[in-house]
Amino acid sequence: MTDVNEQSFSAGSATDTASPRRPKSLRQRLPTPIWRFRPSLQPVAVVRTIKTQIIPKIVLALRSTPIAKPAANTEQAAPTEIEMFAALALGADDGAAFAYVVDLQAKGVSVETIFLDLLAPAARQLGAQWESDTTDFASVTLAVGRLQFIMHRLGDSFVQEASDGHSGESALLTIIPGDQHSFGLSMVAEFFRRAGWNLCTGPFSSHQELTSLVHNHWFDIVGFSVSSDRRLDELKKDIHDIRRDSRNRQVGIILGGPMIIAQPDLVASMGADMMSADAISAPQQAHGLIEQMKGRT
Rank of each mutant, 00 (worst) to 15 (best):
L62M: 08
S281E: 12
K51N: 10
P39F: 01
L116S: 10
G256I: 07
K107H: 05
L213K: 08
Y100K: 10
E161F: 07
D136C: 08
G256P: 01
G155F: 04
W130E: 07
A138I: 09
E209V: 08
V140A: 09
D117R: 08
F98T: 00
I242S: 00
F137G: 00
T2H: 01
S167R: 14
L154T: 09
E75Q: 12
F191H: 11
A282N: 02
L172R: 07
P56W: 13
I253R: 05
I290G: 05
I150D: 04
Q250V: 00
P43Y: 11
S132Q: 12
L255N: 02
S281K: 07
S8T: 05
A262D: 11
H166F: 13
L266V: 01
Q292W: 14
A282E: 03
A279L: 04
M151A: 15
A45D: 14
M1V: 05
T135P: 00
D265C: 06
W218E: 02
R193D: 02
S163M: 13
F149V: 12
A122G: 05
V188I: 07
L104D: 00
A162L: 01
T32I: 15
S212I: 02
S19K: 14
I290D: 01
M270I: 08
M270K: 05
G288Y: 12
I58V: 15
A123Y: 08
I114Y: 09
V188F: 05
A89W: 07
H207F: 15
S269E: 12
M151P: 02
S227A: 15
P56F: 08
D136Y: 11
A14H: 09
G127Q: 06
P283G: 04
Q284N: 04
D220P: 02
G257Q: 04
R244C: 05
T2S: 03
D133P: 00
S8F: 08
D179W: 14
F137S: 00
V102T: 09
G196N: 05
H181D: 06
L199N: 03
R247N: 12
M187R: 04
I150V: 06
D278M: 06
P203R: 07
P43V: 08
L104W: 02
E190S: 15
S25D: 03
N198A: 11
G12D: 03
D265S: 11
F183R: 10
P70Q: 14
A282W: 06
A120S: 14
G165P: 06
A96F: 07
A96H: 06
R63E: 13
L142E: 04
S157A: 13
L210Y: 03
A122K: 10
P121E: 04
R193Q: 02
A279K: 04
Y100N: 01
A262G: 13
T2A: 04
H217S: 12
R29L: 15
L199A: 01
L173K: 00
I58L: 15
M84H: 14
L210I: 06
G168Y: 06
D238E: 06
C200K: 13
Q180V: 03
P20H: 14
S163H: 13
F98N: 03
P43D: 06
S163A: 13
L60W: 13
D241M: 10
M270N: 04
M270R: 06
